[in-house]
Design a protein around this nucleic acid. Sequence first.
DNA 1: CCGAATCCTGATGGATACTG
DNA 2: CAGTATCCATCAGGATTCGG
Lengths: 135, 135
Amino acid sequence: MTAVDPSAPKSAYDRSCAATASGGTDGRAIRDVLDRIGDKWSLLVIGTLRDERLRFSELQRHIPGISQRMLTLTLRQLERDGLITRTVHAEVPPRVEYELTELGATLIEVATALAEWAIARHPLIEQSRAAYDAR
Amino acid sequence: MTAVDPSAPKSAYDRSCAATASGGTDGRAIRDVLDRIGDKWSLLVIGTLRDERLRFSELQRHIPGISQRMLTLTLRQLERDGLITRTVHAEVPPRVEYELTELGATLIEVATALAEWAIARHPLIEQSRAAYDAR
DNA sequence: CCGAATCCTGATGGATACTG
DNA sequence: CAGTATCCATCAGGATTCGG
């Protein structure tokens, strides 16, 4: 399960690697997505909204350490990208709820794969770092 | 294939989401990996080394736009994390070759999934952005 | 050829104070 | 409650120069 089939046909990844640097369409796609999920909070917000529709203050409690500013900015970006929806209820005090879209839900699948890889391989990485730093 | 099963047991992703913010072990794993592949060049270098062992100058040619400095830094990080190996051949002029490790090869699999998601969903994202900006 | 060292810029993100 | 506005520190990363 670890080896990569060298005879595999050109994959999205192959195309992306050449395309990213040369500015092709696929490359922009990869860069766009990486810029989003690569930032500090987006993936965390997505994950928090996985199976709950939450309001602003609830999100802030679920994600310790996030500032109001960053939560706002992150939510705006995700909404703009169509990964979450923002619903304002006309009440006092105001109530705003955020929910994952279908598109956002599909991202969780690949994010899960990434998270599982990270958790599974992290010990090896830490070990490698320790060995490297010890030289 | 798009929907997420709400009855699914706690996944690595669930754990990671809570753990990342609270500083748990899993959370650090996710953050570490995201900090690596989320940066500008790492994933691109990994992809370029997918099925070729390349030397420094070759990498630089394969990845247009990367500076010497960033290539060096990126390679050092990846080597430290055990994702690539660095081999110095005692010759003049010097020849240094970089190669993917087994660990690095496993990363390509999840990176491919991410790349495919990005390319497949990018049109919807762009469309959503356009709609958002038009308001 | 393969870097290391230095300088410099823009972007990211935290802290804080204020508002409808 | 759910933001907005402002200021400020940090840092990734580009350009350039020098060295083994």
